[in-house]
Amino acid sequence: MTGEAIAFYLLAAVVTAFALGCVLASNIVRMALCLLGTLGGVALLYFLMAANFLGAIQLIVYAGGTLIVIVFGVMLTSRAYGTKLRVRPLEMIGAAVVTLALLAGLTAILVRTAGPVVSPSTPDFGVAQIGTELLSTYLVPFEVISVLLLAVMIGAAYLVQPEKK
């Protein structure tokens, strides 16, 4: 086994453990912490695959942005704070259906695109290239996403407006 393979399996084990912890924990802040471990582990996997940009963005957007907002929300909602969460059977069935569908989809993609495993080499795909590609080849999806984000921002600003007297 090469060093890369060892690192990959170690990281994969850590990510899986944190993901399990996130699902099984009954305390919501511990869940958030496990989610942080999962997201950080995935970022490390990206770094391992020499996708530095993706790894850093994963840390900035998910671990440093989204998750901290979740934690913040949890801490400000007094009911969720400190109570133990229990899953009802109906919710469990729904979750199982969704996850199985997701798993099936992922497996289908994996089977269809499975090719020889290429060892990650030095990145010949730099940040500048990603930027150029985003603003030329993938301009339309990029713009669609930015319009979506703008809509979300306007919606949020509208929601938090004080009521007019």
């Binding site: 942080l36 940009f53 850093a56 840390l59 900035i60 901290i68």
Partner: peptide, 20 residues
């Protein structure tokens, strides 16, 4: 190759110690 982004990423994680 992402030096400044790395700094931002680390800075954005800095809050967890205090919050936890």
């Amino acid at each position: 190759d992402i030096g400044v982004l790395y700094v931002l990423a680390v800075a954005s994680l800095g809050v967890y110690g205090v919050v936890l």
